[in-house]
Design a protein around this nucleic acid. Structure first.
Lengths: 338, 338
DNA sequence: CTGTTAGCGCTTTCAA
DNA sequence: TTGAAAGCGCTAACAG
């Protein structure tokens, strides 16, 4: 492949002149410019940005390290990230960790070696050591979706606690007492926060003794398993409402309840943190509080890129942006029959 | 940030020796190795892979240029790509084109400049000029999901024609005559192939005069719009079955039919090319033929990486791998009440 | 307006 | 087993 030297030779100029033409920087006469452009076309020259990056220490590439692109919430978040990054001239490397800290740190190490300009991280663990790795390299970092013990990071997340409170209160207002929560992995802050919000709502309404919650996974299967186990217990009172800590869990719950012949919302009310993507729903049915996943991705990327730009003088005051959630009441909770 | 020189100085060796330790290449005595490793740790040295890439001409990064990560089909395909790439030590840059050739070629140009080792492309257009750009750079390329006019490329795709035939025949076997097809964008090969399969099935069964198909978009909204327009036509016979050329279209159809008070499958049968992801379905309802999206992503990535590895001697015989589709009959077509 | 020099951080010769 | 020199392709900094 031709290099800047080949173009220079062909156009009868110095490489730096070609560089100036390509980058539209500095002064180049019309005449020379044309000659260079012609040489570029004839040779089919494509600049090697790697070489530029080696000098400039900028790759214009960022990375999104998260759990799973297949999860609708992260899926839309990822799209927000890519759109925002692309607008600003950055490419995005996607990395799926499946909630594994090992995977996460493997990815992070490689990304740092690749000199990505910044990293968006959904940490698998509250005390993710990846954060330290990234900060040691002075690589800009924005944590998305979750809290971490290290407070010296920018964070963009949804209001898990508040959302869980809202949803639980909605069920309580409908007259439910025995409300069971199926949460996600115990090590994940969103799981914990949703439990907190749920408990707070129960306690505030004198329902402490009905608190009943379980950690599991953020998956459909987890919803199925937990539902099975709850409804197969002999001699124990059954919940009249179930609160799923994410959308995949709620799908599992609904599927398994149907399987067991238990009617929603007549026999059990169901509601969920985060809903089913609109472009995949025929009949909106699920009462839920939803986080603006796409916007969260956008916002996090904007912050990251601004950090990248101010890099020589890194700021020391970090932002924690908490997006409000939105409650949508539908048939599944029996709150409104639509 | 420390460089290989800093480490070398600290360990009292030459940079090349450090390089050998890091890459586990060549001979280094235990003693020196330990000294180097210690220096690496103390300095928190992270190798700059960019510099390596500049010499080796390998970035270990590939790109996936496709329409939209938000579409479930591509979503799962993307996961297959990332898993496969990651296993082989590659990172993946994701680019969403939204079916725009302009976007596509912008991305491709940038990616080539970034020296990605290979590109996976879902071309927005049958005669994508991006393909030429990529091949001019001798960058390995695998086209996914779609056919292109240029035959000198590796292609991994599903059997759109065969699948459409199968689904149409299923409807015909159930006794339908007035079967309408809502397809995707006319410029996209999968839209065309699904139309072809549909027409072939209709013609083979003496139903040429009932052929009735429309191009639109691969979106939920397109399904809604087409349904509205079909059912609002005065004095024209209504279809007894609708075939959606993808899952998003089918969701729009089902939503709009419900809106219009038209019952599925009693009043109209509905079926679809590609289904709704299992982890998001409560009640499996939609009769569909599905492509193995995840596996297609994996396979395409494997081929791409093998091309990358054989790069100095590029092969000249190209593969076209056509994945078979799987028909699942469910309630929406009335073929089986489940 | 254009060119020379030097160097980004690493690794492939080739030599010791 | 270790190192010196040269260069990957590009671009600041400084001359002219």
């Amino acid at each position: 492949m031709p290099t800047i030297h080949d173009v220079a030779k062909k156009a009868g100029v110095a490489p730096i002149t070609v560089s100036r033409v390509i980058n539209n920087s500095g002064y180049v006469s019309e005449k020379v410019r044309n000659r260079v452009n012609q040489a570029v076309d004839e040779l089919g020259y494509v600049p090697n940005i790697l070489a530029r990056s080696l000098k400039s220490k900028r790759t214009n590439t960022i990375a999104l390290v998260f759990t799973d692109i297949t999860n609708p919430f992260f899926n839309f978040m990822a799209r927000g990230v890519e759109d925002s990054a692309s607008d600003a001239g950055y490419n995005v490397i996607f990395c799926n960790t499946d909630e594994s800290s090992d995977q996460e740190s493997k990815y992070v190490k490689l990304l740092l070696q690749k000199q990505v300009d910044g990293i968006l991280l959904v940490p698998a663990d509250t005390r993710s050591n990846s954060i330290q790795l990234i900060q040691d390299q002075k690589t800009p970092l924005v944590v998305i979706d979750r809290c971490v013990s290290n407070k010296n990071v920018d964070i963009v997340r949804g209001d898990s606690e508040g959302g869980a409170y809202l949803l639980t209160k909605h069920l309580i207002d409908l007259g439910h007492r025995r409300i069971t929560l199926f949460s996600g992995p115990e090590a994940v802050s969103t799981s914990q926060d949703r439990v907190k919000g749920y408990k707070r709502a129960m306690e505030n309404h004198g329902l402490s003794k009905f608190v009943d919650c379980y950690y599991g996974k953020f998956s459909r299967q987890s919803g199925i398993d937990l539902t099975k186990s709850i409804f197969s217990k002999e001699n124990s009172p059954k919940p009249t409402a179930i609160f799923a800590a994410n959308n995949l869990i709620s799908v599992g719950i609904l599927a398994e309840l149907r399987n067991l012949g238990i009617k929603v919302p007549q026999d059990v009310a169901v509601c969920s943190f985060d809903g089913i993507p609109e472009n995949l729903t025929v009949i909106p049915f699920l009462t839920n509080v939803a986080q603006p996943a796409y916007k969260m991705g956008q916002k996090a990327t904007e912050i990251l890129i601004s950090r990248i730009k101010e890099k020589p003088e890194p700021s020391t005051d970090f932002e924690e942006i908490i997006f409000p959630v939105e409650l949508t009441i539908r048939e599944s909770s029996g709150g409104k029959i639509g």
